[in-house]
């Protein structure tokens, strides 16, 4: 079965690339800067990397669903900005500093970005918008309107301090050295993300709906002649992708202390990282999550090195994820894109 072949083949490459990256970082670290690696890859670092990876994973899973079905949702970054912003608004108006308010914000953000995603899906599918241009539009709208509204609500593009969701600590198990902190003393949103990743893998490869999604992106006509409405499938995936990116933004907020609306906003390219993550993961939800973890790890490295008083400019270290993206895309250009991505589907003409 070639799907398995594909998967194993890809996994080998994924793991090897991740290993090479890690090794390179390790060698540079130890040789050039004389850094003790055990003090970098602490349990706290891995746990925080997972927190960082969660929003990217969610956006990536959403994006890959859309693209699998034939629609390139390049607006993930924009939806993430909206998600983070709406979560801040929701939490703020829920009025309090507890985890329950943070959760309210997450639910509110996901609901609202879903509504926006419906509008976006109508433009893409019903009105056959240029997917790339419209996606860029969503990004710019997010970059403009989120800080605009933030200024109106808080008098500043940044929000006041927001509560987080805390950690899900399993008594006893969390005492296990190393793993305890990573697995049993972890943000519930990381758990949620893992659940979404596994669930969306099963859905995509083991249910009839998953078959339809794959067929819609590869040969929509085949699906149509099998009696399934292609555009309905695509509506579902595009809306899902917007909702997941929105949830991702909300998770990002919950893992940070406040909404930041200056510059590229707090999302700061994570939506784009999400796209790269699913390309890197070859459209497989689990692969995408693994790639997101790589990006999360690279992202957190900056802080980790700083705590060790290693003198590398924060500004330059902060660019590491973007450089990794370019390296990954360049070494990974062979991803097979679904055959019908970007083409609107019409039944009769």
């Amino acid at each position: 079965m070639s799907v398995v072949e594909y998967a194993s083949h890809r996994r080998v490459r994924l793991v090897s690339l991740a290993a090479v990256t890690a090794l390179a970082v390790g060698v540079v670290a130890t040789v050039a800067f004389d850094i003790p690696l055990d003090r970098i890859f602490t349990a706290g670092y891995v746990a925080r990397s997972m927190e960082m990876a969660a929003p990217i994973s969610l956006a990536a899973i959403g994006g890959l669903y859309a693209e699998k079905s034939g629609v390139f949702n390049i607006g993930l970054e924009g939806f993430m900005i909206f998600g983070a912003f709406f979560a801040a608004v929701g939490t703020y108006f829920a009025g309090g500093g507890g985890a329950v308010h943070a959760w309210a914000g997450i639910v509110f953000a996901t609901a609202l970005t879903t509504v926006l995603a419906v509008l976006f899906a109508v433009l893409l599918i019903r009105y056959k918008a240029d997917q790339i241009v419209a996606g860029l539009g969503v990004w710019f709208i997010g970059l403009g309107l989120a800080p605009f509204t933030a200024s109106i609500i808080w008098g500043s593009r940044n929000s006041p301090r927001m509560p987080g969701v805390g950690r899900l600590t399993v008594p006893g198990l969390s005492e296990i050295p190393y793993l305890g902190r990573i697995v049993f003393d972890q943000s519930p949103l990381v758990w949620l993300t893992a659940l979404v990743a596994v669930g969306s893998w099963v859905f995509l490869y083991r249910t009839n709906y998953g078959y339809w999604i794959q067929a819609a992106g590869e040969n929509p006509e085949a699906l149509d002649t099998a009696g399934i409405d292609v555009n309905r499938v695509r509506y579902a995936t595009v809306i899902f992708s917007g909702a997941m990116a929105g949830l991702g933004g909300a998770v990002l907020l919950a893992h940070s202390s406040s909404f930041i609306g200056t510059g590229q906003t707090m999302v700061d390219g994570r939506g784009w990282l999400g796209i790269v993550a699913y390309l890197f993961g070859n459209y497989n939800p689990l692969g995408a999550a693994a790639a997101a973890l790589l990006f999360g790890g690279v992202d957190m490295l900056q802080g980790q090195l700083q705590t060790l008083n290693i003198d590398l400019s924060a500004k330059l270290l902060g660019l590491l994820p973007y450089i990794v993206v370019i390296v990954v895309l360049t070494g990974w250009g062979k991803t097979r894109v679904p055959a019908s991505v970007g083409e609107p589907y019409e039944t009769e003409e």
Binding site: M1, S2, V3, Y211, W212
Partner: peptide
């Protein structure tokens, strides 16, 4: 022009849209 989904297996193609669940 065959209405087949190239990367999917023969079985998946045959049952597409009529999958036993």
């Amino acid at each position: 022009h065959f209405q087949l989904v190239m990367p999917m297996t023969v079985l998946q193609n045959i049952i597409l849209g009529h999958e036993p669940v």
